[in-house]
Design a protein around this nucleic acid. Sequence first.
RNA 1: GUGGCUUUAGCUCAGUUGGUUAGAGUAGCGGUUUGUGGUACCGCUGGUCGUGGGUUCGAGCCCCAUAAGCCACCCCA
Length: 473
Amino acid sequence: MSEVKKIKPSLSKGTRDFLPSEVAKRNYIFDTIKTVFRKYGFEEIETPAIERLETLTGKYGEEGDKLLFKILNSGDYLKDVPKEELAVGNSQLATKYIAEKGLRYDLTVPLARYVVQHQDDLAFPFKRFHIGPVWRADRPQKGRYQEFYQCDADVIGSNSIINEIELLMIYLEVFERLSLKVTVKINHRAILKVLAEQGGISVEMFATILDKLDKVGLDSVLDELNAVGYRLKMNDLLQQFIQGTHSKQVHQFENYFNGTWGFEDKATNEKIVINSNEAIKACLDVAKVINSSELHEEGSRHNLVQFDLTLARGLNYYTGIIWEVVANNVQMGSIASGGRYDNLTEMFGGQNMSGVGISFGIERIYDVMEELNLFPETISQGVKVLFVPRDQSVEEFTFQQVQQLRDANIPAEIFLGNVKKQKQFNYTEQKNIAYLVEVGENEVQSGKFRLRNTKTRDTQNDITVSEIIQKLS
RNA sequence: GUGGCUUUAGCUCAGUUGGUUAGAGUAGCGGUUUGUGGUACCGCUGGUCGUGGGUUCGAGCCCCAUAAGCCACCCCA
């Protein structure tokens, strides 16, 4: 190693380093969420970052498959590729021969695998939470990364609506603890499904178009529905549900599905009346969840939970209630989302277990809290006191004093860096250390110190170590 | 997958119509001063100007290619 090649330090795209102060803030969010999860009986699990590729592929649609990070097989990974396919040079076809593993794309599919695989060892309904990084080979942009954390709680094996209500309570409590003002938007996949079917297009297409409403506006949405051959006149309905809608209006909404009201066919102007028990039940469920928000103190005072017909995004596996949380007064996408899914465990040969879950988008929650200045001062606190030896001859003595504080369970540090005062105070500032004590010959002789508050610059003279311990404990 | 922007010191950025040896601030290192202090002063290190070609007597600057990063679409948290 005579010559070391210098490499410019840089990160892979869409990934980030975190400074100590940032980690402290992130942990503050994680800890808050974990506390609430546990309070509601959810237990933490872990699964590997790496999954078999066959576990992951096909679960997120065609788009999703493209965004999977695949891990190259070890060894001579080309040897299993048939020669004719190598010759063609189609990398997509070759993938299955050269990569058997991938990085997880979310925490839900690993959960489905986990539940089926360990069903004998789990207590059902299985309530778990899981916090960890996931990876997507997406093009990064603001608030979107290739490596990011998800923070999920799910209930598997119970289809009671109380689960939805409990999860809503978790949303409300977490955001209250974080002092974040939010709005929960709620919708039901069955409602979208009926409206899509009656209009003669697929739910996915219907959902994708509706979801853009707040971005592109009503006219554009109606145009797009026209373009794909959607049959029902939606003008009134959409106009009515553009703004946040409250529980009473959800009851009205029911009238679209119980034969009371109807839609007009665009082409024939014929009246189309829908009778759908599924959609009626969906409306009732949504109304129940919205009403239940009043069980929550904040929820009863503010209009926290709103029906929103245009909330339609999300992965295709949702089948029941879907929801999304947005922060009030901040320009930012959703900061949490979730819903009920019915068929997830089937893919892994499990019996059909219903699941419902929520997910916190902690990267965005972080950004919002930073923007609104909601992080408490105390979370990035370093040790309580920094002892600074004036020169090398008193280092050992200084260390002994520090160790006394530590024995008394007071976090303390000895400063062994640059002797410049500027550096020492920078150190306390960066690490948010409340007190500084300088140690020189005088202190060694007298055993008395001067305790200096690094923020207020107040000093307390002639104080002994045991007095410092008393003061700081 | 589509489009736009950016790339010069560890970081933030100057750099004139193409013209000597590429600058500043900041951080880092060293020193001066100060026994009760933090904002002072002096000095030093650090760059293959993203990379590879081309035009030119001469390129950080012009042209082509390429890479990386960011931003916006699609989609998503």
